[in-house]
Design a protein around this nucleic acid. Structure first.
Lengths: 218, 218
DNA sequence: CTTTTTTTGTGAAAGGTTTCACAACTGGCA
DNA sequence: TGCCAGTTGTGAAACCTTTCACAAAAAAAG
């Protein structure tokens, strides 16, 4: 209806609402007010209402929002009302931790394939998935209809590998290598830099910032 | 540093500048212009100059910024010109990956202590550090002058543990449990939620968001 | 059925961040 | 020396996000 752009912060807050709604559902709430939702995620009621109103008005005045429907609606908006086929490249320390990260599976991210360039790792098993070699990459990504790639390789090889991945037509990549990767304009890339979060805390301690933030922007 | 508030985004960009400057130093650049710095991190020259001007003016008109000095200055601002004593609680999948994460050590985050509540893990060795039991927590954090805690425990036990940590006087916590933790106002808390990043990618794919600003004319 | 209470949805105001545009300064060169 | 090219530093403008405040709607109470 409108072509107002939805901000990154709004999308991240949807993830928070989804989490809160999951808890509310477990606690057998039928409806929830913007105030309650805001309290649970440390936001303001006005913000909750503004965010949700971007996608239509599914609350009831005087009552609040229906927990189950709202949760489903947000799942649909976020695209997690379905299963995504994910490949994970790099079965080192971080890579093998991510294979076992239950939160991914819980939200429909199904890690189907594992890759590594290390001959000693190829053929080994992680959570029932056999690690494949990088020469199989292109064919396997296509055959298994992979839509999303998680990159957990060393910074030094990340760009080369991401080029391959992009070549296979993958349009979404979550990168854990602490490096700025170049990808075409039509590929979605997010880089998770854990050292940067520690740097933020370090800055906060040193400068004794008068506030605390548990939320991220960019 | 007057009482102008520095935004979270600015601080994160400082981390990016730091990374770019590290590369520039390796490439033997003496000076760098805001334009070059901006290109390397996909920002605008104006933004680079605005960010840096928050902390004083250390560029030279007509020349640019001195690479080495600027890098040192940013390190000082971020508080990474020193070593931080870090404790890591939870030596499961993510925890053990983080112990070996070289980027932490490289930026002065020294993981000194490991904790776990699992009897089978207590006493075991990770990268030369012996895993301690949780009953030792309070004493050990104090004795080892720990300033920063990384939490990599299951969501179900995270709040109880964070309460202990806060009790020990720790003022900065990096949390990997996918849950909203309550801490006093004077404690800095950051929560790293990897599933949320995948959700953002999922949203982008489903809604085919226009990403990446097309910059720039001239 | 009428009144009171609750809570949404949303324009408008406030607040914050990024970009623009240009004066001011520097180094190099003739 | 004077001039040109390059680049910073920074108010002002443009843009974006959050908060405010209240009418409208629905439920609950009497």
């Amino acid at each position: 209806m409108r072509d107002r752009r939805i901000s990154e912060s709004t999308i991240h807050r949807l993830s928070h609402y989804y989490r809160a709604l999951t808890a509310l559902e477990r606690e057998h709430f039928d409806t929830v007010s913007s105030r309650e939702l805001a309290n649970r995620e440390e936001l303001t009621p006005a913000q909750v209402r503004k965010d949700l109103s971007f996608f239509g008005s599914f609350g009831t005045r005087g009552l609040g929002y229906p927990v189950k429907e709202l949760k489903e609606k947000i799942a649909r908006i976020l695209g997690i009302d379905r299963v995504w086929n994910v490949a994970l490249i790099g079965v080192g320390n971080i890579g093998s931790a991510l294979v076992s990260y239950k939160e991914f599976a819980r939200q429909g991210f199904n890690i189907k394939l594992l890759f590594d360039s290390d001959q000693r790792k190829i053929g080994s098993n992680h959570k029932g998935i056999t690690v494949l070699g990088m020469d199989d990459l292109e064919r396997q990504l296509n055959e298994n209809k992979i839509e999303l790639v998680i990159l957990a390789v060393p910074a030094s090889s990340a760009q080369v590998i991401v080029d391959h991945v992009v070549n296979c037509g993958i349009k979404a990549i979550l990168n854990f290598a602490p490096i700025k990767l170049a990808v075409p304009d039509d590929v979605f890339l997010r880089t998770e830099n854990m050292a940067m979060e520690l740097e933020y805390l370090s800055f906060s301690l040193v400068n004794n910032l008068p506030r605390r933030s548990d939320r991220k922007k960019t």
